[in-house]
Design a binder for these strands. Structure first.
Lengths: 191, 191
DNA sequence: GAGAGTGATGTCAGTTGCTGTCATCAACCC
DNA sequence: GGGTTGATGACAGCAACTGACATCACTCTC
């Protein structure tokens, strides 16, 4: 038998999410989270740098997914096509039920929104960096990064709140079509 | 003689900025800031909701300036023209020396970057809201808000770091011209 | 002009986020 | 079987932040 119950970080994350849902982020202490997970406060801070971070574990993997998606796009692909490929790959990174609960808590908590904005900025920077590495100019890379994350946010929100639970790629291409409309004045995306 | 030295909030802000420059945000305690301003820690928290906020007082006024700028734009103006008018008005809101020092501290401190992203988001939302109120559609208003703040950030950074100290409007129109290039493929802005 | 506010400040005690340090002890290695 | 490792617990301590109450120059009112 193992000395400790497995998956301490996962238990802490689930305990935190439950408590945040029940009584709110600020009204929950780290000691309470740890107790529900069968651990101590000190151990919580060994797994997560701070109280907010418990809801953001995994964002580094998302960065990797997006960068890999851009890197794997064919050399002839435009910046936006490479970003689109990356965003398609990103859809597989989320467990829908967890994502939905987590999103509700973040929307209710300014402190968590701050952290989320920071993570999204790192996604933007990572996308722009990957594009620059494949030869895209600085300004276009930055703009494409910002646009890509804007599309990502729209896609994520719709996917998470869709009562029909349509797949990620469907929402993604819907958002991209709207981007085309905005830029070109009419729907033109084929597929 | 007045019972207290005047401008407590201003003294706290200057003391905080000095200490953040000297030894960094995290290495500075609120008690130290208050002491340098001739006040107590408790009084600091009466003037500022938290330690970060001491560098962000005034952002509500910037929101007002931008919204007023959009509201005052002629009814025929496009969304982008209204945003441009608002951004021109925003230039007068900054004292360059303070802005430069503040920016350096924020760039060195992730905690402060989080707060800054939050403030920029509220600027984006305010711009988009003002545009919607003058009849601009939801999606265009949001995109114009995001674009406007992106241009604002570029303008602000260049203005603050410009060794030649050229005026705000000059940097603003430079950034807008680049936006045109990106969107239209060639410089086309006249004035 | 005396008494009753008013408002910015001080004082103090308390909670909570977060950190450093040392101890523990099953599992693993040689 | 003894040493090492690695996740955890225990405990002390700092700093951010809050609530409650006291202070006292100024101001308003009659």
């Amino acid at each position: 038998m193992a000395r400790w119950e497995p998956n301490a970080a996962g238990r802490l994350r689930e305990a935190a999410l439950e408590l945040f849902e029940e009584r709110g982020f600020e009204q929950t202490t780290v000691a309470e989270i740890a107790a529900r997970a069968g651990l101590t406060e000190r151990t919580f801070f060994r797994h997560f740098a701070d109280k907010r971070e418990v809801l953001f574990r995994g964002s580094e993997e998302l960065v990797d997914t997006l960068v890999t998606g851009v890197d794997r796009a064919p050399a002839e692909a435009t910046a936006l096509e490479a970003v689109t490929a990356a965003l398609e790959a990103a859809g597989a990174a989320f467990a829908p039920e967890f994502a939905r609960r987590r999103r509700a808590v973040i929307l209710a908590t300014p402190e968590l929104q701050e952290r989320e904005l920071m993570k999204l900025t790192s996604l933007t920077d990572a996308l722009a960096g990957a594009l620059r590495r494949r030869g895209v100019g600085e300004s276009v890379a930055r703009l494409a990064g910002e646009t890509g994350i804007a599309v990502f946010r729209i896609t994520f929100d719709r996917w998470v709140t869709d009562p029909a639970q349509r797949p990620w790629t469907e929402h993604l291409h819907g958002a991209l079509a709207e981007l085309d409309e905005l830029v070109l004045g009419a729907p033109q995306r084929a597929g």
